[in-house]
Write a protein that binds this DNA or RNA. Structure first.
Lengths: 104, 104
DNA sequence: ACGACGTATAAGTCTATGCTTATGTGTTGT
DNA sequence: ACAACACATAAGCATAGACTTATACGTCGT
């Protein structure tokens, strides 16, 4: 998925809230509506967008759609952001060297 | 800056390209236009948005505006993304413990 | 002082997106 | 078989955002 698409998808607060909810575990589309002042089609559309971006997985079980976070979908975001980690706390700056050591 | 704002700002490919250019070093607004098929006001507006989100710094020098990456502005993004690092390569999963050790 | 320059702002246009209501599709229980 | 259910899709509307042209603002060189 393109970086542009991922950023667009995540720029919606409702979708980020959905992801946060899903990070606590799988949930159905109806489950997810609790706590959100949102109609069913709106939720369905948000989930379709998240699915399209590869940020969530869908597991079909009869008439229920179980959604969960697809952490691999965040890889492009991690990769992009890594370019701007130059000013991470200095401890973390040493990470690369550290990992190199760990590999040996 | 709110996560929503940061994601929106970064969802524009031109703005991400500007950041990439700036990550190679400071540049003026006019410098930045090279290589971009973009009018001067459009560039100025993008820079205003980046500045507003705290992602770039402006250094005024006479009639020139020198822009540079403000890496601290990426902190909210790092913090948010950290929640979804559960599936980072397993080596990195140990980072937290590692850093804890380093502090001692 | 004045004109060229570097940049910012204003105002309008066009498209993208998130919402709504209405409806379609497949599944389950009786 | 049929009604209720879980979810998806369609179509329309309203707002946001990225662009344009025009113009304003401050700075520099002559």
């Amino acid at each position: 998925m393109s970086e542009t698409e991922i950023f667009k998808v995540l720029s919606d607060p409702t979708r980020r809230a959905i992801l946060e909810r899903l990070s606590a575990g799988e949930a159905t589309a109806t489950d997810l509506r609790e706590g959100f002042a949102i109609t069913q089609p709106a939720m369905s559309q948000h989930l379709a967008v998240l699915r399209g971006a590869g940020l969530v997985n869908e597991r079909r079980e009869g008439r229920y759609a179980h959604y969960s976070v697809n952490a691999e979908g965040f890889a492009p975001l991690h990769a992009w952001l890594a370019r701007y980690r130059a000013f991470w706390p200095s401890r973390i700056d040493n990470l690369k060297d550290l990992l190199r050591e760990m590999d040996q």
